[in-house]
Write a protein that binds this DNA or RNA. Structure first.
Lengths: 121, 121
DNA sequence: CTAAAACCTGACGCCGACGTCAGGTGCAAG
DNA sequence: CTTGCACCTGACGTCGGCGTCAGGTTTTAG
């Protein structure tokens, strides 16, 4: 596949894919003309990268954890610590997220009860 | 309270508090010398602001949802839609977060089983 | 009264994840 | 063959949430 197709299928920009390559998150081979070639699995990998970004991980961390997502590779103790630390961070973030979400939700339902409107969602 | 005390109690920088004021998230009165004065509730408010930032909301959105967290104020339908949209975004984000977290956790336990080490956490 | 600490207002710096523009090349269709 | 789109490599722009420095004022401790 060429870069445009991968971008379209994964729902990101072409620029983003080139950026991921710079950051060493996504690799490609080149054809004779120098254009990037991707295997079909690239789309899935890009989706995973996006998911990791979306939960707040920076490129550096993603670069370090991606090999483990790929396959349960050999893990040095330092990397294990990194993974555990990130997992704990995610746990805390989920707690915050739940709090905020419930707070918002309460505001919504309360506001809906307060006026005359029925209660969807 | 003065700004330094609020900052210390809320665990943020003085600069951050001034920034929140610029963004219209946190208000203060001034004494004769022109220094900011905060009511005790400010600390709680700052913690809430931080929590909202931490789940990825930008200043603009925080500015819009804060009044509802303060008190279940009168809600225009547009604001209700905004709140519901944000809540849904948070729901999606929690799902992503759970996925990534579990993925990481699986990597950790699998790695721990693979070598000889016992299994903490 | 004085020195130090805390505060004030600009204003510039920074970093990450791209957007975007410039100027040139590769490739498929008519 | 040429037209036109997809692609290439720099390189600069942006935006948000502050950090930080400069240069001055106010409050507090001794």
């Amino acid at each position: 596949m060429r870069i445009g197709e991968v971008a379209a299928k994964a729902g990101v920009s072409v620029r983003a894919l080139r950026y991921y390559e710079q950051q060493d998150l996504l690799h490609s081979t080149r054809n004779q003309g120098g254009q990037r070639q991707y295997p079909p699995g690239a789309v899935e990998r890009v989706r995973l990268i996006q998911q990791l970004y979306s939960v707040g991980l920076p490129s550096r961390t993603i670069r370090e954890v991606l090999p483990f997502a790929d396959s349960g590779e050999a893990a040095s103790p330092e990397l294990l610590e990194l993974l555990a630390a990130e997992r704990d961070r995610l746990d805390r973030q989920m707690t915050d997220l739940r709090d905020v979400r419930n707070r918002l939700h309460d505001c919504i339902t309360e506001a809906r009860n307060h006026d005359g409107t029925g209660s969807p969602s």
